[in-house]
Design a protein around this nucleic acid. Structure first.
Length: 882
RNA sequence: GGGCUCGUGGUCUAGCUGGUCAUGACGCGGCCUUUACAAGGCCGAGGUCGGUGGUUCGAACCCGCCCGAGCCCA
């Protein structure tokens, strides 16, 4: 396998049984080696088809979602490459965020706090590189037509530069700001974490009912709030009442005094109060939970920080300063009780947010964060989404609802070690931000100097570097710009793209779970930078469920490992399964579908061997094709047209099923059996080869390995693989064959009927039939029927055989009768049912009405009284005499 | 709790701008060596189209409610 000479020595060959293990590995290797799928550039944006592929997060190995998603993309890429020319099918890794840090910590069993930032980043790169190499190998094992010379990693310097350029551009456009805001914080790990790193956990706790006094001329003296976190009362900034809470209406607008600490807070109405819980009166602290944060934003409340980054009470907590939150809770409850403010205390179990890794309940801490302003451009982003084609269309509503529900701007700063740094320093004296120069990017403010000696605002001469890094989505939302080679051109003073013909991209494929993340954020960024919608179309794929239609989850232990599936089945068969679901629908992993794919591959292989046996290698097209051959090629034309339509609309399941039915039933079961009897026909020889070549190209996007193997064995010309590969060849177009389709169809019906006849009598299919008479349109196909069914004498009847008929039933055409007779239809039905009707001169008299012949059909039961056996088909009557 | 989506023979699915007999595959039963394929061919059995109420002459399809599942947001 290492020796390419040896490789070439065993060229593709159509002998014996198909060996997918060997053949698939061979072509995967040769495709990559020959750079078969390299994007070679195109001058015209209309001929370049570009896919903005999802960069997988490096978090271990390939899962079924990767396999499925990339296979769908590959269907599109392979079809477009054959049909329209140049295709960019790139690949990237998202290795710059929290996921890669956590992977590193787990893999090396370390904590990032134990290392210098640079050192930890280095470890991250090393660990990620290992996982990426393994992942790449698995991806190549999928046989996708990715251009492996066109890849990126989100942590690489080129992408860091693009991320920082994006930040500077949006800042200059006035679309970014920095302000104090709360973030989820783990006091154990001493770091901000994202919401996806938290989970709910049931914990024992106490509900404490605490009395607050009212100030001034209040309607009553006090009220009671319930809380599980009494240590937060020094951080209390307001009290909330539900606007519909009749019992407490009188409190709205009053001022409350916080017990022990004595500060005064307003009482405000807000419908986010849960009236079912406790007394219906809630205190808002900065910050106890996510609701507090919403209220803080909505009512512009002051900030009182009573807990620091290590979960220790601050000076705001007065006498309790320096205690842990747990200690403070105990002491504050005791003091409330002794001062008479504690009215009740009871045990409860409730859900608290904890850090999924250390199970520590999270806090909400305030720090200065960078935001991208998006709320003021909601309409633009909605319009941008509406401009794209959505496959399936229904997914647009998810995007729309997400945008309509947006309440906060996009927080892009993260307090992490291994992301892409903000290219910003702050003046130590006045906090004025100093941005890096574009030509210097990428920069790391922690090690690089700011581009100025003095603060342009106050003249101060010392600067603090920004320590935060970008949110992962802030970078992965730039993938179209990364793939198109977006950069700042110093000379012209504007942004340029290395491959402007790729942008906007033709397709954005992704799962339905990240419409609100990847797709939305990409539209925000690209729209703001370029003023254009970044995609013509988006294809939203569903999720792969387990064989019982349950979601795959590690804790349930029902995760299917693609490596095992790929070990057991040919990739082409797995791809056949991947094409079984309508795009957008969730669908189960079922190996019966993969087995069906295996059977198809075998069928294609065996049929190819037969075609090669029956037909000369490269026959010329005869002057005139015989009816049966012209019929096949006309049907093939129709299949080509249908398939092209389906693939252009990303309807892979429809394309797959259409092609399978035509190939298996029409070509193999019907035509090939006929072709066996016509080996010396130049017409059939030509049609066989024409159809066979076409089938290989039509199957190529779905079954790239087996089709390439057969193609190379039979049809490829001499030369480099990148030129001779089936996959860089042309997609077929209908050739305009004209045939009597009805006659062909009827002939096939007659053949089926004769097969049924033999089958029912337990005769072998090649048993001889003495005499067969056919009444029906089979002109030009008589000989074909005779030969394939071993009929000694076949007669085409001019007139119907001697049959007696009697009316068996009346079939109404309800689509016409309904609108015309409305509620009378019931009576008409009843009349026919009971036999109280009459058919005369093409008119049906029933229930006092006269129905014209266009409204009904008379179904007759035929009885054959002549010699032999009568068999009926849809459009013919067949009489068999043995 | 809110939004979106899905629910068709044992399993997976097509059909869903309403019009008699609901498509195909896998599985199951029976029969058969057509010049490749028995891992093939032919035939057959198997469905109250999640439940319920409504609109209509007529509903798998349109509308309401309920049940179950998935995703996103709280």
């Amino acid at each position: 396998m290492d020796d390419p000479e040896h490789e070439d020595a065993r060229e593709a060959a159509l002998e014996g049984e198909y060996n997918p293990t060997e053949v698939e590995a061979k072509w995967q290797e040769r495709w990559v080696e020959a750079e078969t799928y390299a994007y070679e550039g195109a001058a015209d944006p209309n001929t370049a088809y570009a896919i903005d592929t999802p960069p997988p997060t490096v978090s271990g190995s390939l899962h079924m979602g990767h396999l499925y998603g990339h296979t769908l993309q590959d269907f599109a890429a392979r079809f477009q490459r054959m049909a329209n020319g140049e295709v960019l099918f790139p690949f990237g890794y998202d290795d710059n965020g929290i996921a890669s840090e956590r992977l590193t910590e787990e893999d090396l069993d370390i904590r990032h706090q134990e290392y210098e930032r640079r050192e930890f980043q280095r470890l991250c790169r090393e660990v990620c590189a290992e996982y990426e190499a393994e992942f790449t190998e698995q991806m190549q094992g999928l046989g996708t037509s990715i251009d492996w010379s066109h890849t990126y990693k989100t942590i690489e310097p080129r992408v860091q530069r693009i991320s920082q350029l994006s930040f500077l551009d949006l800042y200059e456009k006035g679309r970014e700001y920095r302000k104090n805001a709360p973030a989820i914080w783990c006091p154990e790990c001493e770091t901000a974490i994202s919401q996806v790193e938290t989970e709910d956990d049931e914990r024992d706790a106490h509900f404490n009912d605490i009395a607050f006094e009212l100030t001034g001329n209040a309607p009553r003296e006090e009220f009671v709030i319930s809380t599980t976190r009494p240590e937060l009362i020094p951080a209390c900034v307001s009290v909330f009442i539900h606007p519909d809470d009749d019992a407490n209406q009188d409190l709205i607008g009053e001022t409350a005094r916080v017990p022990i600490f004595g500060h005064e807070v307003p009482i405000i109405a807000d419908d986010r109060v849960d009236t079912e819980k406790g007394s219906g009166v809630v205190m808002c602290c900065t910050f106890g939970d996510r609701n507090d944060i919403e209220w803080y934003h909505a009512h512009d409340l002051p900030l009182r920080v009573a807990i620091d980054e290590t979960a220790t009470m601050t000076d705001l907590a007065g006498d309790y300063e320096g205690l842990s939150t747990a200690e403070a809770r105990t002491e504050i409850v005791e003091d409330l009780e002794s001062e008479g403010h504690l009215r009740d205390r009871r045990e409860i179990v409730h859900a608290v947010g904890v850090h999924e890794r250390c199970d520590t309940p999270v806090e909400y801490r305030v720090s200065k964060q960078w935001y991208i302003e998006i709320l003021d451009h909601k309409q633009e982003y909605l319009d941008a989404g509406a401009e794209m084609e959505w496959y399936p269309e229904k997914m647009f509503s998810r995007y729309r609802h997400w945008i309509e529900g947006l309440e906060w701007d996009w927080l892009i700063s993260r307090q992490r070690d291994s992301g892409i740094p903000f290219p910003v320093w702050y003046c130590t004296d006045c906090d004025h931000p100093v941005m890096a120069e574009r030509e210097d990017l990428p920069v790391d403010p922690l090690s690089d100097e700011p581009p100025v000696d003095a603060c342009p605002k106050c003249g101060g001469e010392s600067f603090e570097p920004e320590e935060d890094v970008f949110d992962t989505w802030a970078t992965s939302s730039l993938t179209p710009l990364i793939n198109a080679g977006w950069d700042w051109d110093e000379e012209s003073g504007e942004f340029r793209m290395e491959h402007p013909e790729l942008y906007p991209f033709d397709l954005r494929p992704q799962g339905h779970d990240i419409i609100s993340f990847w797709l939305f954020h990409t539209i925000v960024k690209c729209y703001e930078h370029t003023g254009e919608v970044p995609f013509d179309a988006t294809m939203i794929n569903g999720h792969v469920l387990d064989e019982n239609r349950e979601k795959m989850s590690k804790s349930e232990g029902n995760v299917v490992d693609p490596a095992e599936v790929m070990d057991e089945y040919p990739i082409d068969a797995i791809r056949f399964w991947a094409a079984s679901a309508a795009v957008g629908d969730d669908f189960p992993y079922q190996d019966q579908d993969i087995v069906a794919g295996e059977k198809l591959i075998r069928k294609l292989w065996n049929a190819s061997k037969l075609v090669d046996d029956l037909a000369p290698a490269d026959p010329d097209e005869p002057e005139e094709l015989e009816a049966i051959d012209r019929w096949l090629l006309a049907e093939l034309d129709a299949a080509v047209a249908d398939l092209t339509d389906h693939l252009e609309s990303y309807e892979f399941a429809k394309a797959r099923n259409r092609l399978r039915t035509f190939f298996w039933n029409t070509f193999c079961d019907d035509y090939l059996e006929i072709a066996k009897t016509r080996e010396d026909s130049a017409s059939t020889g030509y049609a066989l080869r024409r159809a066979h070549r076409t089938f290989l190209t039509l199957w190529a996007p779905f079954l790239p390995h087996v089709t390439e193997e057969i193609w190379q064995a039979l049809y490829a010309s001499e030369g480099e693989l990148a030129e001779t590969s089936l996959h860089t060849g042309k997609w077929p177009s209908p050739q305009g064959y004209d045939a009597d389709l009805a006659a062909g169809e009827t002939a096939m019906e007659v053949v089926s009927a004769l097969r049924r006849y033999k089958s029912e009598r337990q005769l072998p299919l090649n048993a001889d039939l003495e005499r067969v008479a056919v009444y029906g349109p089979i002109e030009g196909f008589e000989g074909v029927i005779r030969d394939v069914m071993h009929v000694s004498e076949l007669e085409a009847l001019e007139d119907p055989p001697e049959i007696t008929t009697e009316v068996a039933a009346i079939d109404l055409d309800y689509s016409k009768v309904g609108p015309e007779y409305g509620s009378k239809v019931g009576e008409i039905d009843a009349g026919i049912e009971s036999g109280e009707y009459e058919v005369r001169d093409g008119t049906l008299r029933v229930a006092g009405e006269e129905l014209g012949s266009e409204l009904f059909e008379v179904e007759r039961e035929r009885t054959y009284s002549g010699d032999g056996e009568m068999v009926e088909t849809e459009s013919a009557v067949v009489v068999v005499s043995e």
